[in-house]
Amino acid sequence: MMKYTQRKIKNNFMKFLLFFLTLFAVIPLAIIFFHVIRSGFGALNYSFLTSLPAPIGQPGGGIANALIGSFTMIALASLISIPVGIFGGTFLSEYPQGKLSSSFSFVVDLMTSIPSIVIGLYIYAMIVVPMKGFSAYAGALALALLMFPIVVKSTEEILKLLPQNIREAGLALGIPRWRVILSIVLKGSIPSLTTGVLLSIARISGETAPLLLTAFGNQYWADGLNQPTASLTVQIYNYAISPYQEWHQQAWAGAFILLMTVFIFNLIARGILVKSQKDS
């Protein structure tokens, strides 16, 4: 038998090892975070948020059109993907038997692993070329295709966590199955579903490649949803690849805004989850 002190030393050593490895994993994140804040925060001011990009050579300029463009396209994408994705995930969780369910599950898994540039290319060929132009519609559709499988999978996982006997309790009250799913299973999972949705929005907020091929970008305000539309990510890209020092600053500032948005979405998502766990 091992002595008490020996066990204690061993235990502390393993604890330290785990702590150290965790720290190791967190370090890159912290470095990126602080670097973006340091480089971006300085270039940030009110006019950066409210004005259009400035022409080359002129000082100032901002990302107002890119913010609105990103917001519009993400909102449109959410409008499509959230309801469809939640219903799809509900189907997978509540009716897992049968061919339809397993093939749908397979398709969704495949969709999750399609590289986003391929989705961009696909929308380019299917929407942009026939419509003879880049547009916010095309951008939103590309984002929706990326978002949909994420929402389906998170919904499925969340609903599967609900014990089976909750569903049975509903059925045993003489409530039809579809009502049990709607009024008990889905309604009871709203907090966690919201978390899943917020995380999927955060996930697509950072997409650049598919937008480059579909919404393209715009130095000015778009005249409508059928026009090339600026987005935060593409704007950051354009600023970053330019040869001008001042534009590099703008890229960092844009990156800062993007990082903060994603960060805040994650925090809210986590907050909702923690609160709902406390309640139950």
Partner: peptide, 21 residues
């Protein structure tokens, strides 16, 4: 069967109140 279940109640092994209600 839905009608049958409205006439015969059931209580389960593990208490299972509906979540978020």
């Amino acid at each position: 069967p839905v009608h049958v279940r409205s006439q015969i109640g059931m209580v389960f092994q593990k208490p299972n109140p509906f979540p978020s209600m």
